[in-house]
């Protein structure tokens, strides 16, 4: 355990101080918390029953979110293949993979919603900024995964094919690719799931998809409609996860 001796006491002290500081400087007032109950009840009251007339909007929004996720993932895959190779220590020298890995870490550190806002500013409203934002944001993770897939390949079969007289491309096809294919498939499906989940809310900043309707209905106090859209989103997330679990089991 880390909590031992002086270091342990110092760590505990630091954590206690951080919690106290957060309470003292945030306006956490119990009176406000107490009055929240009836308000939330009122909020829920207005959400029920959910308005089923927004089916058309739900369909349109979900389809657009799905398209953003698919094209965003495609863009990320296209970017991640070369970047993944350049970030792998088996394919390139440290002088290349170190800066590329730093770049990928930097990309991962920028939140998707921030990229989306910038892209809305750059290319205007609609699904396009969403697609670009998802592709950019997902590359930070996917390229790293691809590099790890390349580096995780066992060397012995490659040497065996070399010994048999196979050239580099033939070795890539028959010794490297069969080993990394399932990892790449699993990682890409995983990233697609994340992309779909994350792009559900992109509409809130105007970057397309179903999030647009949630934002619109909440702003205009049409909570019953917002509730329907929210239910649709929850159903989608559960469905994605179920499909994903089934798919991932195939790639082992």
């Amino acid at each position: 355990m880390a909590f031992r001796g002086f270091g342990g006491i110092a760590t505990s002290g630091l954590i206690a101080a951080a919690i106290l500081w957060s309470f003292a400087t945030t306006d956490v007032e119990f009176s406000r918390l107490l009055s929240a109950g009836p308000r939330i009840a009122d909020f829920f009251g207005r959400m029920f029953p959910p308005d089923p007339t927004v089916m058309a909007e739900i369909k349109k929004g979900s389809a657009e979110t799905l398209r953003i996720a698919i094209l965003g993932t495609l863009g990320a895959v296209i970017l991640s293949v070369p970047l993944g190779i350049l970030a792998s220590e088996t394919m390139v020298s440290p002088a290349v993979f170190r800066p590329i890995r730093t770049l990928l870490a930097f990309i991962r550190a920028i939140p998707l919603i921030l990229v989306a806002m910038l892209m809305v500013g750059a290319v205007g409203l609609g699904p396009l900024p969403g697609i670009i934002a998802v592709a950019f944001h997902a590359t930070g993770m996917l390229a790293k995964f691809y590099a790890e897939a390349i580096d995780g390949v066992s060397r012995a079969p490659i040497a065996a094919l070399e010994s048999a007289g196979a050239g580099p491309l033939v070795r890539l096809r028959y010794a490297i690719w069969p080993q990394m294919a399932p990892v790449v498939a699993r990682d890409t499906i995983f990233r697609f799931e994340l992309n779909l989940r994350e792009s559900l809310i992109l509409g809130i900043v105007g970057a397309g998809g179903i999030g647009f309707y949630i934002q619109t209905y909440v702003r205009s106090f049409q909570y019953d409609k917002a509730a329907s859209v929210t239910i649709a989103v929850v159903v989608m997330v559960i469905a994605i996860e179920a499909i994903n679990v089934a798919l991932r089991r195939r790639f082992t």
């Binding site: 012995a156 065996a160 010794a175």
Partner: peptide
């Protein structure tokens, strides 16, 4: 590479492509 197939090697740890 033209000469490599003439020498065959059986590896200590088999060196097979496991998923193929």
């Amino acid at each position: 590479s033209a000469r490599r197939p003439d020498t065959g090697f059986v590896f200590q740890e088999f060196a097979l492509v496991e998923r193929s």
